[in-house]
Amino acid sequence: MPVIVAAVCGVLLFFFDPEETVWLPKCPFHLLTGLECPSCGFQRAVYSLLHLRFADAFRYNPFLFIAAPYAIALVAVTWFDPHGRLGRLRKLCYSKITVYIYLALFVLWGIVRNII
């Protein structure tokens, strides 16, 4: 199921440029406040990545390069590791320190991107 959802989103974001189309989801936080949330630019970044434009992806949302690997690792150890082969990665992903580092970076990035 998570694979299907990810695949559908990937296909949509490959064929539809978020800069060009109005059909892709909008960030409610940005619509309401005019500020950029830490994930704003995520779809444009994924679109750029799927077209192998890494510099553009980084420009749209550098935080994606932290959040996406973490999220993928979490999903992998939680839903795709029935035999516990990824035990060490699991402990790392679920450790309080990792979670708080992620939270701190998330909040910090949200503040910084609206100042600079």
Binding site: P28, F29, S39, A71
Partner: peptide
């Protein structure tokens, strides 16, 4: 997992 995914896909 769900809460991390929620932060990525907006609604901060």
């Amino acid at each position: 997992v769900w809460s991390i995914l929620a932060t990525i896909f907006c609604c901060v």
